[in-house]
């Protein structure tokens, strides 16, 4: 029964700061065991939504449920089952790495020491070092260890890899896949907000793109890659093209690039009828879909 309850259920959420609607009528559902991507530009409302999940903010209207519970009423019950890594992590500067982990562990019912040792080793963090002496990358690594050792059912990541170097970013993602996800995959859910989409591409099962507090696109990742295609054609001479179904047409002399949103077969046939010298197509990556989704909105 437990498994049928969505891990996160947001219905018609709005959050207003003064006269500004940071989130405006957002709905989404995350099922257990999924890795859910939450994409949006800066200021789109990602962090506000996450703060509503954690009861750091109260919704203006609409409802938020985590594990079927209301964050406003069952804050402790919810927080004991999840971990959160914010984009800016802060620790008590006078504590060492070990003190910090002990301190974090003291709030938890469960703490996996083996995973802790393993990850300290992997990240080559010195347990005796003061947190004030850690670099930004090391701080994020420490936060990640603190988030994974309690082996929570839900891992909430808010822009976790922004500002980190490529090696630390790669390690971060490998750790989420390895140390976190492989424990009990049916019940290890990840909710990650990011605009560094390509790094998380392989991890994402489903995603929502949010823009100005509203959903722009919500889809299964494989289906999205099937739906959005880029077609490239080259003709023997410059063509006057009329492709009303295309999301975007870019033309540079004899070369044409067409974006298709679910109608790539039709567009391919139309282009083929014009007898191009060369015709190629490929799927868009999630990052390109993110850009394309903003075109859909304008259209």
């Amino acid at each position: 029964m437990e498994n049928d309850t969505p891990v996160i259920e947001i219905k018609d959420l709005s959050r207003r700061y003064g006269k500004t609607d940071a989130v405006n009528g957002l709905s989404l559902t995350v099922q257990p065991g999924k890795c859910y991507g939450f994409f949006g530009r800066n200021g789109a409302g990602k962090t506000t939504t996450i703060k509503c999940l954690l009861n750091l903010l109260r919704p203006t209207t609409g409802s938020v449920r985590v594990f079927g519970l209301d964050p406003g009423k069952d804050e402790v019950a919810i927080k004991s089952r999840l971990s959160y890594v914010p984009d800016m992590v802060a620790f008590y500067p006078w504590m060492s790495v070990r003190d910090t982990l002990e301190y974090l562990a003291s709030f938890r019912e469960h703490w996996n020491r083996d995973v802790e040792d393993d990850l300290l080793n992997r990240f080559q963090l010195d347990p005796d070092q003061k947190t004030s002496a850690l670099s930004k990358g090391m701080r994020t690594q420490l936060a990640l260890i603190g988030a994974i050792c309690p082996e929570p059912e839900l891992l909430v990541l808010d822009e976790p890899t922004s500002g980190l170097d490529p090696i630390v970013r790669r390690e971060f993602i490998e750790t989420v896949i390895g140390a976190y996800q492989s424990g009990d995959p049916e019940r290890r859910t990840v909710f990650v907000s990011t605009h560094l989409i390509s790094e998380f591409e392989g991890l994402i099962d489903e995603f929502t793109i949010i823009e100005q507090g509203r959903e722009l696109l919500a889809m299964d990742a494989d289906l999205a890659r099937e739906r959005f295609k880029k077609i490239r054609a080259r003709f023997s001479q410059e063509m006057k093209l009329n492709l009303p179904g295309a999301l975007q047409v870019k033309q540079n002399g004899r070369d044409v690039e067409v974006l298709a949103n679910g109608n790539s077969a039709k567009l391919l046939a139309e282009l083929k009828a014009l007898q191009p010298e060369e015709l190629k197509y490929e799927s868009l990556s999630l990052e390109e879909i993110f850009v394309a989704a903003n075109l859909v909105r304008k259209a």
Partner: peptide, 17 residues
């Protein structure tokens, strides 16, 4: 094994499974 392969390809573990 599933875990190292998922880590290496940076794929969701469930996808490999």
């Amino acid at each position: 094994s599933i875990r190292p392969l998922a880590e290496e390809l940076r794929l969701n573990r469930n996808t490999v499974a």
